[in-house]
Design a protein around this nucleic acid. Sequence first.
DNA 1: GATTTATCTGAACAACCGTTCCAAACCAAG
DNA 2: CTTGGTTTGGAACGGTTGTTCAGATAAATC
Lengths: 199, 199
Amino acid sequence: MARTTGSHSDITGPRIRAAALTLFARYGFAAVSMRQIAKEVGVQAGALYNYTPDKQSLLVELMRDHMVELLAAVQDDDRAAPVVRLERFVRFHIGFHHERPDAVFIAYMELRNLEPENFAEIETLRRRYEGVLERILDAGMARGDFAVADAKVTTWAVIAMLTGVNTWFRSGGRLSLDRVQDQYWQMVRRMVGSVGGSV
Amino acid sequence: MARTTGSHSDITGPRIRAAALTLFARYGFAAVSMRQIAKEVGVQAGALYNYTPDKQSLLVELMRDHMVELLAAVQDDDRAAPVVRLERFVRFHIGFHHERPDAVFIAYMELRNLEPENFAEIETLRRRYEGVLERILDAGMARGDFAVADAKVTTWAVIAMLTGVNTWFRSGGRLSLDRVQDQYWQMVRRMVGSVGGSV
DNA sequence: GATTTATCTGAACAACCGTTCCAAACCAAG
DNA sequence: CTTGGTTTGGAACGGTTGTTCAGATAAATC
């Protein structure tokens, strides 16, 4: 026998990406075989190649989609006060990353499995995202609202701290997402030397 | 022919661990083969099994050694003021991790490749390290030196932020290690609401 | 209902995987 | 110089890897 039932072009594609996302996040790109992905989808390994030229492309596509989504979702209104912009950024980052832990995990862990040109592409997107925060910090410094020693270093510090939430926070635990966002916003506000508001 | 020259029992062992450390950090545990490690050492793959029962043990040993070293190196004098203890911790963490980027990378990235009992062991060591920082924060709160909302959350936030230094900082760049430690200490001090000292 | 087109199966490919084992080669002790 | 133990080379094991492809099947078109 050949195919089992029906034609599933528009169904199989997304299912392959979904399976790859889950499996890559759980076991790592290198540890997951094309046959495992196919099995999860309910298809033979060869069929995957109707949707991706090779395994590497599957990974790149997942990472690129994630980063593009991230950049589309972050919105920074530079007419607002820097403190407001910063608070929005902090809450956004935590919320957005919390909703897609697998994609976040892959985007941070599988960079070394990218071929050079793919790595460069993803890295560019990441830097663009960092740039959003850096501009907020610059604006705050220009207005005297923030007092940070180095905008770049502070950017990396804040993002590392915020992304770290994903390693321990799960819904339904001791703390709600809102509460976590509150706490991290408090920490970030203090970090940048913002004196406005209650402590 | 069999062996080439000499007997190298006490040489080969460390060389295998060193090669595994470098390769695992660069390409990931799953992506590195025993033959690659052997080649780096200048030996056949079979010879590795005089020094490790299997590939997994090689990984666990590297991670355990790193964590044990870390726990041995961190020293916290609980008779000192919490602010002093915290500053020492921040500077220590950055300095220690900067000296062994490969081991740090592996210890954070390869946890998912550990079998359950090995994972539990490494996780215990990691929690013990986090405990050092958490106790400092507790002590500072008890004395009213710090004002943090949640010691556990703050612990994770600080460690994520400090460990993040390894992703961008390299010696010989724009900033010296001392300067980086200064900046991170300033950020952490503000984060915990410590009001003492200059801003 | 016949023909075309998209999709999938199942087998095959060469290469590589972790691990085992025996004989060969070496060093050190007697 | 011989013996004994340690260390290694090299081949072999069964199994898995990413990828290709001809042929089979189903859906879409006419």
